[in-house]
Design a protein around this nucleic acid. Sequence first.
DNA 1: CTGAAAGCGCTTACAG
DNA 2: CTGAAAGCGCTTACAG
Lengths: 352, 352
Amino acid sequence: MTDTAGKVTIKGLAERLGMSKASVSYALNGQPGVSDATRARVLALAAELGWYASSSARALSQSRSDAVGIVLARSPEEVGSESFYMNVLAGIEAVLSDHDMNLMLRMVAPGPEPRRDLGVYRRWAGERRVDGVIVFDHTVDDPRPSMLAALGMPHVLVGAAVDAEPSAFGANTTVDQGRDAGTVMEALHRLGHRHVAYVSGPQRLTHEAARAAGVHAHAARLGMTAAVSHSNYTADDGAKATIAVVAGVVPGSALFPTALVYGNDLMAMGGLRALKQLGLAVPGQVSVLSWDDSILCQLGSPSVAALARNTMDLGRRSAQLLLEAVAGHHCANAAMPAGVLQVRETLAGVLP
Amino acid sequence: MTDTAGKVTIKGLAERLGMSKASVSYALNGQPGVSDATRARVLALAAELGWYASSSARALSQSRSDAVGIVLARSPEEVGSESFYMNVLAGIEAVLSDHDMNLMLRMVAPGPEPRRDLGVYRRWAGERRVDGVIVFDHTVDDPRPSMLAALGMPHVLVGAAVDAEPSAFGANTTVDQGRDAGTVMEALHRLGHRHVAYVSGPQRLTHEAARAAGVHAHAARLGMTAAVSHSNYTADDGAKATIAVVAGVVPGSALFPTALVYGNDLMAMGGLRALKQLGLAVPGQVSVLSWDDSILCQLGSPSVAALARNTMDLGRRSAQLLLEAVAGHHCANAAMPAGVLQVRETLAGVLP
DNA sequence: CTGAAAGCGCTTACAG
DNA sequence: CTGAAAGCGCTTACAG
């Protein structure tokens, strides 16, 4: 509170110190061109007066906003109840704040038709409000990478497929869903399961397409049968899909799936509920496994077996890649480690 | 892609149109000073070329950043698993984007000692990076309101106590925890409960202090006894607190709490788990109620009774108040509606 | 090592 | 209704 008459600026510092604005700027930014003694005087006064560079002035002269943007195009309910997003965001934020970058977050209604998220990217690019963006939920024929490239906007896809190409505008974090499908299917095979149903999220998501392909491939290899149905990532949809999968199939018959795998934790919880209503014992008659781990799975009763991934780390790596892209460096994609199966109460062997 | 040679600016528009930058600016901003015909020409060209005002240039000249900041000082785990935050954020975001404002989000480690969040506010104010902030988790003797006032930063407290004073820098959304405590205690009383334990979050949070006071007051009024213990908002802490509360107390004895109320959904889930391990039947021997509703409560097995509030709306109202404060208007606090009891499987009457 | 000057892209009194 | 000019607070070649 040294100065009530407006904010302290570089000009103010220069006047008090009796030198030019340029020298003050050089001193403040660690640039050469000032003596150590001068630099020390400048820094001391700046600290004393609580000077900070105006973000807009700096952004205007440097053409950098020091901000990174994220547009989430899912419903608040989903984003709020699936801890995946917040965990990834936390990882991203940790890296960004370490580098004095800021995170700009926008949520738009998920309506697929007039994709409002595209307008946000266009606007952010036009306003030069962010230096780059991190893209969630990569879809088949996703318009965003090419659009962002056309806008000259650095970007990183979070958890893309292994064959997603890194571009001049950024590399991606990738998850090998086929490998993870192998982990899941092999575990089920080992427990004696031969008929598996995968209740997937929307198939336009590339990671779900990759999972479905992986499930089928590994089933074939292991001599199992697998049915994949596509649904949405909510508990209600998980319940509906479950009923559709087991309805009319006699438990114990050759066609009955003894294991149900779900694309996320919410669907698994909804599925559990549906199975209970149908009078099917978990894991006595059917095992349940979620492809995403979360506190929901851990605290559920019964607790839900899940494939756990380090989502904070996924965020961290994605942010690091974006910072590289913003700095103009070319990088390779960053492959994320394999998911690890968390065996819990819903997973058991098949009785002979 | 009309113009590859750099972004289109107001100067560029003016040159193509053969007029001054000022006129173009007036036309673009809906200011008087240009004819309708001129304005139409300008807007048409701007739309054609995809012009957007540079956010930094506009911020520099208007001394407004068109951004609002939020610092979350809880662990990513908590923020991720408690849907409360994301829901409030979604409500905030909906209002902000309606007003062409942006949301800047930062998460800092919750370590209480060298409160890193304060540094973020100071920096944001110094850099003029945000026009105002929305403050979560108001605490007793919270240093933030006075600090933000000293910084001249408009701010709004989310879900403050009813006696939180609105200031020249913003009003607050308030929640009458005493009234909600009445809802909870009366419902329990009606079911025959006479001994209640409230497992609260940290008592430095003003809303928890208010709840504890409300629980005690209503217990006294209704002829009940209430014990309040303070813990943290995690499932593990909920479990530990539960064990501490019921350990050594004989079920059915006069001292045994027949109803356990928890400060949030995570603690309630942890408490449920502990009760199961202790061999106590829910709701047969003890009822469980969470002061926050969430998908965890809905999907739990048994499903957990909860006091539901409209958290999206809490976010919306908070954002509206902040926009008023940023605009320099004085407002009254906005009182949020009463919580509504969601009766679920964990809540039952006491057997005589 | 230091200073005067131009520029980043807007907005906004102020003359015409 | 329109234009020339100053200013927002920085950074950065460019001379000295």
